[in-house]
Design a protein around this nucleic acid. Sequence first.
DNA 1: GCCTGTGAAGCTATTCACAGCT
DNA 2: AGCTGTGAATAGCTTCACAGGC
Lengths: 208, 208
Amino acid sequence: MISDRTVERLSLYRWLLEMRVDPGTVYLFSHQLASMASVSPAQLRRDLMAIGYSGSPSKGYLVKDLAGSIGAVLDGSEPSRVALVGMGNLGRAIVSFVRGRKSQLQIVATFDKDCRKTGRVISGCRCYNQDKIEEVVEKEKIITAVITVPCAEAQKVADRLVNAGVRGILNYAPVPLRVPEWVYLENRDVTAALEKVAYFARQEEERK
Amino acid sequence: MISDRTVERLSLYRWLLEMRVDPGTVYLFSHQLASMASVSPAQLRRDLMAIGYSGSPSKGYLVKDLAGSIGAVLDGSEPSRVALVGMGNLGRAIVSFVRGRKSQLQIVATFDKDCRKTGRVISGCRCYNQDKIEEVVEKEKIITAVITVPCAEAQKVADRLVNAGVRGILNYAPVPLRVPEWVYLENRDVTAALEKVAYFARQEEERK
DNA sequence: GCCTGTGAAGCTATTCACAGCT
DNA sequence: AGCTGTGAATAGCTTCACAGGC
């Protein structure tokens, strides 16, 4: 089992390999890729060890090959089908982010309870009414979801998603959701992150 | 020095104390607050140790007092003044999130390079043209900033912010920024987070 | 010589477990 | 009896440092 931290860095390495390496570059040493990712070379080599990838001591890593090996681990056999609930500003921003980035992620359904938004196609993606969560998630065999609804609804939405078969949730609502231990949950509370950054900024300022 | 993880949890505890505890509740035991935050009671007690707060073994923690003590550590003496660069969907979502939440954070300036947005007031906050970054950040003595610009601009914006005196950056652009070691940087790449969640969702699904 | 892969060491975060208090 | 505060143990993550290969 690959660790949380490692998976996140692998995603970054792949992006760098695909988007930030000059197409003429065939081989790369660990210190070069590590420097692009702002991690230590040892860290990078450990991460590659986790996916069983080996480079050549004399030439380094084969760029295309490494990107492919990371993809084989992260993406599995087919593109990940994702649902997103809550088409406010944040939800729409995430849909276009993901769409704009070359990636194996597909947001295949979005949900909202506001009638002005539902039934329409927003940012190139069909938006359903929120009662349809169970129906659509089951039919489309979706196991990954993003929650961008207001705080008060978040737990209810999470329960319904889990019930319909979702196994991983990325939560942007600022409330700690309660899910069964067999559902992977990542919380991304914006305010908490900003309070943290503000705290450490002040620390740095004070010891100037 | 309080650790990264602890500061983030403290922010959550305070929010729970202020928003999720029935106003009639005067005292709370560590296991009660820990359960609301989905952490272990031991974890909670360690975190409170870090800010030097003590409860009573018989009654637990005094709700109002604890919230105040956390605030004294996180907020410092005055509200944190924050700048946000990039008023797309994501930027606007964050501005209204922060505004809607009772908090000591104030987004006092936003920036964009699109003329249709600049000079206007969006989500209750003045939006300046991006050339004004140095001027406004220095004048307003801002040390904390959020970056929500497209990938290609992110590094340039970060350099300018740092130059103008910023000491903490919350970065939503999917590129690892390079900043001096005395600037605190938190990356929140949406795609990387989603790829991670999709990966672990698949793991859970496979060992059903 | 300078790289990779990796055992071992070092460091950080979390949990255990219990003394001490009420 | 049941809580808190905390030393000690454990688990997890990162870096060190070096054997082995080109």
